[in-house]
Amino acid sequence: MPDAAGPIGLPPRFAGQVGEVADWALSNIDDPIAPRLLEHVQLSVAPVLLGLAVALPLGVAAARWPRWYPAVLTGVNVLYALPSLALFFLLLPYTGFSPWTAIIPLALYTLAILVPNVVDGLDQVPDHVRQAATAMGFSPMRRLVRVELPVALPVIIAGLRVATVATISMVSVASLVGLGGLGQIILTDGFRRNFAAPVVVGVLLSVALAFLADGLLVLLQRWLTPWTRGRETGATSRSRRAARRDAPPTAPDTGSAAPPAAPAARGEDA
């Protein structure tokens, strides 16, 4: 993390700084670090799950009735533009210092990433697949659950990865309001005491958590969609490009899922 440590870790003092960070981390594992880390995990997992629970039905509905999709998209994008700090403050009178004050706004933000990905994933289901399922006697509901959603899964998980990483990094803002998480270490142990070590520990742990969660989601996708494995081997440039659509670390905001121009066009023409 050269850019984050740069301004402080000036070369001559650098070794000492690393030692200081390690010292602080080791002597504070039990007290602030472990419980804050646990809080951070809870405050990031809950919003993503909640967001997914809302985005799935919303996305399915928007894919089914495309006329409403622009309105839905505008709605989730407006939510996304709300400053998180303000939402936390505004919820405080109602939900107090409970986790919900952080979870509800963070869940709202995930919608802007998850809903377009659910819709794009479902739109990408080839027509012949849908027709085959119907011909086999699948009811619309069963076709959705057993055929369309599984085929859309790589795209949905792509969105889930972006949403998870974004949420984990955003939880820290909740600490400005006093809602816990690793940001609390950054602010109370670092900022207020003018002490860099806790800040570095908080940032590193937050980044590590994001990468861990991202890796777990990749494993989940491999496990859930075994048919996409090995698609990338020995590919021509064309099929490699197709495979890259399923490779979400590169996902733009709406996921790398859709063919490049489509999400842009849809968003703008809305």
């Binding site: 993390m1 984050a4 440590a5 301004p7 402080i8 972006v162 990483v165 974004a166 984990i168 990094s169 955003m170 939880v171 820290s172 803002v173 600490s175 400005l176 690793l182 940001g183 950054i186 602010l187 670092g190 900022f191 003018n194 002490f195 860099a196 800040v199 570095v200 908080g202 940032v203 937050s206 980044v207 994001a210 990468f211 991202d214 670390p249 590169t250």
Partner: peptide
């Protein structure tokens, strides 16, 4: 480039802000 971008995405904004404030 993609790796740098992903690390950047994962960086908590508050943490970056605090580090730079402490330094400068």
């Amino acid at each position: 480039a993609i790796t740098v971008a992903n690390v950047g995405r994962a960086l908590p904004t508050i943490g970056v802000l605090t580090l730079v404030v402490l330094g400068m």
